[in-house]
Design a protein around this nucleic acid. Structure first.
Lengths: 230, 230
DNA sequence: GGGGCGACATGACAATAGTCAAGTTGTGCA
DNA sequence: TGCACAACTTGACTATTGTCATGTCGCCCC
């Protein structure tokens, strides 16, 4: 990918987009640009954080390994999204590992650069808090889903989030493979398969990585209904 | 509670403890001090955040209500813990509601005070990020538990977190009632009851709000084992 | 002291998700 | 072209959890 294109994507990221031009230039000029292959590790849990990461292309997953090797996917990021803000600024170990799940380009902003800029201008702190709050919010939403919805309902919501429209019909591409979707939604691949089958009567057709939704409103109704009143 | 005692507790909070004395004084002098009864609402989801909250005594739960009225407990805070940092500084709506689950004292720091101080001294931003990161971390840990452990294992870990020792035996008090513990662990009260019974053979005795653990290491082993290899 | 109420425990049953095994399909590489 | 492998699907079975109903216990209040 052309470097100029990369910079343009970085400028649109939640982390940078509200910063004054001058600071953005400083950050971009000190950033490290790297490509990763599918399956490559970006950083490991317990490693000390030395940078903030901005995804420019491809998909990155954050996950935690339990003592016994089972993995829990915490989040999945793509173009324009950043992660590691709160950790990098405090020189503490990452609570999660990061891995490229597709070939991808990532920009790394070394934390000392960010820190020194932050002492100059408090706006930077606000921007970082904005990005961190977005993560906090998405974790809270995920927690709510896990605690209050069945597997099929979580799948339904996942599909709804891929749709742009509020109602009517819709065709979407599944953004990454089903094993990862299952992990992200806290279920096994087999359960995801079955959840898809259960959504068929609700007007959802899955073919490869392509999904056809015939009635968005109906699907939303299914996702939001209390499981007890079905 | 005496006001001086309250201030002493506030000073020890994660949010304030690493700030220079002068800033702490400013914040304390602008803070609002309030008491809440059990069941009283501190703020509601979707309400606009106008302050950061520090618990001085008692217990506060943060939770989300789904469209249908089922509630998902996101976290439970007590003395010295703070919440709402990232939200207050951005004037966005709270993603959760907060309610006192026991009589409690809470200090509110109006966000404008925090914001103006932050523009003076970037250290404040770092302190806020520290507190925010702690929340982020605890949410990630909770997500991992929900995705990778059975109910009984989560209960075991909950008990272990109440113990001070690393091994041997231990007696602990359950910090709040079982309905809330169940909510916090993402299960129904009935399931919590059964989880406790299942822990009996592992040397856990529950009597009212009192728990006796005969072998911490054994319990830890149970909590950390892959469910598949039982 | 005697309701009455809410928290908690327990049993029976249903729903949901995980496990194991077998089969299908698609992709990439020899 | 064809083999090998990984992703995915499906079925049968089991484990776990939720639901509903019932019963006990402790506590608050008159």
């Amino acid at each position: 990918m052309a470097h100029e294109t990369q910079k343009a994507i970085a400028r649109q990221s939640l982390l940078l987009k509200s910063l004054p031009e001058q600071h953005v230039e400083t950050l971009l000029s000190h950033a490290i640009w790297r490509s990763y292959d599918r399956g490559e590790t970006i950083f490991l849990q317990e490693e000390e954080a030395k940078a903030v990461h901005v995804v420019l292309a491809g998909w990155v997953k954050l996950f935690r390994m339990s003592a016994t090797g089972s993995e829990a996917v915490v989040s999945v990021f793509t173009r324009g999204e950043s992660f590691g803000e709160a950790v990098a600024l405090r020189n503490v170990p990452y609570p999660v590992s990061a891995e490229a799940v597709s070939p991808c380009d990532v920009m790394h902003i070394p934390s000392p650069v960010l820190l020194s800029l932050m002492r100059e201008d408090a706006e930077i702190g606000i921007s970082i808090l904005a990005a961190t709050f977005a993560h906090l919010h998405s974790l809270v939403a995920q927690l709510e889903q896990l605690k209050a919805q069945t597997g099929s309902q979580r799948v339904a919501e996942f599909l709804l989030n891929l749709c742009d429209d509020e109602s009517g019909a819709c065709d979407v591409e599944l953004p990454y493979d089903k094993m990862l979707i299952a992990g992200r939604l806290g279920m096994k691949p087999e359960s995801l398969s079955r959840a898809f089958s259960r959504l068929k009567p609700m007007g959802v057709k899955i073919n490869r990585n392509h999904a056809k939704i015939s009635d968005i409103s109906a699907l939303r109704g299914y996702a939001e209904n209390d499981p007890s009143e079905k």
